[in-house]
Design a protein around this nucleic acid. Sequence first.
DNA 1: GCGACAG
DNA 2: ATCTTGTCGC
Length: 212
Amino acid sequence: MQHARDIQRHLAGRVIGRNELGAPVLIAGVDISGERDGVAVAAVVVLRHPQMELVEVQVAEGRPGFPYVPGLLSFRESPLIIAACEKLSHEPDLLLVDGQGVAHPRRLGIASHLGLLFDLPSIGCAKSILCGKHGPLDEEGQAELIDAGEVVGMAVRTKGSARPVYVSIGHKVDLPAAVYWVRQCCRGDRLPEPTRLAHLAAGGRLKGDFGV
DNA sequence: GCGACAG
DNA sequence: ATCTTGTCGC
């Protein structure tokens, strides 16, 4: 599917890497579960900073109309995630995504793609690297993620001695702000609360149901 | 040509 | 993503 890659190269030029994020109050996290009999579940949760209390949860299920292809994740997951987000009654100030932002071969990972579609500040926080490499983490537990000579993200140790997560710009934020907010959202877990809870919700294991 | 490869 | 619990090591 070469066309999908052309779309990414085109949209990448629209990503805003300047920080337009103030102090977000409503932070949304999105994630999608693996298929069950061909059906996947997308979930979006909205938390209120700084208490990180759950404000809203919405889900949407259906058949991913696109296979998993490294680099084309958004074409597989975005439709269901968008369906779930359209049910929200709360408009988030920031979107946290389980996946890469611009730390992507064509600089348009799913976090950037969703940020553009919703015209919302977004941040990508992935559990592993898609492209790029980095040296040892510094005293802050961080190291720049570099691809083709460009700093595309940051490896960030968010908990104890656990392996780092990979933070990158989604849209309308800069890297320092992205790293700052990911750290702000981590509550004793390696992954930020928004995406962690979205993951649980997508798997139908979010305790204390929210009318889902 | 041979690997690497978000979820 | 998924197969899968307790266990070895610092």
